[in-house]
Design a protein around this nucleic acid. Structure first.
Lengths: 340, 340
DNA sequence: GACTGGCACTCTGTTGTGACGAGTGCCAGA
DNA sequence: TCTGGCACTCGTCACAACAGAGTGCCAGTC
């Protein structure tokens, strides 16, 4: 059974009012606030149909209606008009991000900005190493058997790791290896690196094989393990807005989920090019986030995507506004990264 | 007016019971649960005195007594016996921290461990740069007018910053500067670095003066600004334990305070050697944390302190246990750092 | 002088009742 | 297909009554 235009209009009105007031909305209030051109009785009939179809529901018999997850979904997919950012907001984004000193700073500023603009919890993934390219690899001898390996990615990320050598190696040899490693890897995408690293080992002379093998394994470790795991989080205090009415009484499960990097990565890390993804309530596969929605997107210099960012809030959130903000911030961050 | 031993014993019993049950404790329950050897009427008299002295108070006329901040303070200073960690806990600490890959990982593991053991919010400050020494400084030419400056501290911290040169500089010159910079700074404490950096500029030949000046200012920026600001946080979900009875109804102010790095640094960054600091309720000068207590201490390899760590929870917390855990974790982290 | 038993008193939290109002569902009529 | 009207359902609020916990105080005892 399909819904005619007016029913959709009623659904939109319900979502908008509920998001604004946070109270179940009744038929009478609806006709008063929106010029629907019909009486409340008609609206009531429409509501009955919408309820039957699973888009809205009644908390109690004598209360107004509240959108269900499916209702929000329909709203987001078909009913919401894009809400352009105000010039003030645009300026705020630019000004806030402009002064960033380094990558760490960019990420921190971004996450705070996002939390502030959307008034929700913001999450930003650091540029993923596997999607970056190597800019430079530095080998710093600490002693004859210890080397600090520093990898600098083109996105500005820097990873370092200590490497214990099996045999003492003079620092001249190390410098030579440093040159070779950079010749081979500089400019390469990290995802392509593992086979190249292997050839480095294969090509090295026998007397340096042991040291190079050790370096190679440390390098691979740096590239693969934990490589996408870094995240920044801000705005947890925003969860308390709406005074526990959202999140059915306890922030507990939500706070717990926010502590799990794995979960957060799943939420914002799985990004497809130039899509803004909206997950509403149950659509998050995580039990703890049944009453939360996540809006996420990818960012990166130009068209490539190096990481994800997004916000998390109650299902009852201002989707059009949030989506617009998340997109805008992602775009600005991308531009910022492209400049370096 | 001084309190005799029994009154102190009564105060201790009140604190312990209240911490355990989270409910105001009455005179009758007290004599039943603790073998005080006197009747409830006597305890009531003692309680009246304790209340007059400001160590306990009644939420309402007909409720039991609850410790005040001053009561907790007295308890911590004079009444609490140190609670040694269980062997299981010690083993947990060792096992959990043993597998750390690098500094980032150490800090992350530490903060999670601390949150888990104390069941509270944990904060760990990254080893402060100003308390560390320079291990190595690397200059990576990106182009003839851009250099990536990477500083590696002996605590394992790595800071990097991009430096825009005012004049194109050939990479041979850069390599030469790299050598000079390291000769001058390697092994020096960062706090002592600024004057040394200045001499570097003064000593450099005129044709390189501009480039060196630029490098120097970037270097100083790296050393000074933001240098102590990095923090890791975990266990926010633990705030919801005790179901909002602690924190007088809203987590809001507490969550807000936890978002402010400046505030957190103030709480756990101001550490004196080998002291565990306990701040109870009002003793935190931050309004938002009126109903919270903070237990913090310093950590570092050997006797030196390179950073602070601690936990934050409701004033109604298990002080002896928390203090013991915070100390133990700090000691283990110190040992771990000493190994590198 | 210190402790105890007992009693009156004060509150809080709970329970129950009734009035009120918001909102619905449904039906007959336009 | 829409509308006006009406009966019905519940949740909320205000108020009163009540039970229970805990205290303060006093007179009596060791």
């Amino acid at each position: 059974m399909s819904l005619d235009d007016r029913k959709l209009e009623v659904l939109r009105a319900i979502v908008e009012d509920y998001v604004a007031t946070q109270e179940p909305v009744g038929s009478k209030a609806l006709v008063e606030r929106h010029r629907l051109g019909v009486s409340s009785a008609t609206v009531r009939n429409d509501m009955a149909v919408l309820e039957e179809e699973g888009y809205i529901r009644q908390p109690h018999t004598s209360a107004g209606r509240v959108p269900t997850d499916a209702g929000y979904r329909l709203f987001v997919d078909r009913l919401s008009r894009v809400k352009p950012l105000s010039p003030a907001e645009r300026r705020a984004i630019e000004r806030f991000l402009a002064g960033a000193l380094d990558l760490d700073d960019v990420v921190h500023r971004t996450v705070r900005l996002l939390a502030q603009l959307t008034r929700q919890v913001a999450v930003v993934q650091y540029p993923s190493l596997t999607r970056s390219a190597v800019r430079h690899i530095e080998l710093v001898p600490i002693s004859t058997t210890r080397i600090m390996l520093v990898m600098i990615a083109d996105t500005g990320r820097v990873e370092q790791r200590l490497c214990e050598l099996p045999v003492p190696t003079p620092s001249d040899d190390i410098m030579d290896m440093r040159r070779k490693v950079n010749e081979k890897l500089a400019g390469q995408r990290l995802a392509d690196a593992p086979p190249l690293v292997q050839t480095l080992v294969d090509e090295s002379p026998a007397d340096r094989r042991a040291t190079m093998t050790c370096l190679a394994s440390t390098l691979l470790e740096t590239l693969v393990e934990r490589s996408d795991a870094r995240l920044a989080l801000a705005g947890t205090a925003n969860l308390t807005r709406g005074g526990l009415l959202d999140f059915q009484g306890t922030l507990r499960p939500v706070l717990e989920a926010l502590e799990e990097e794995v979960i957060l990565l799943k939420l914002i890390g799985e990004v497809e090019p130039s899509t803004t993804r909206v997950r509403i309530g149950d659509e998050n596969e995580i039990d703890n986030l049944r009453s939360a929605s996540v809006v996420s997107t990818g960012y990166g210099p130009g068209a490539t995507i190096v990481g994800g960012l997004g916000v998390l809030g109650p299902t009852r959130m201002d989707y059009p506004g949030t989506i617009a903000t998340v997109r805008a911030v992602a775009r600005y961050v991308g531009e910022l990264l492209a400049q370096n």
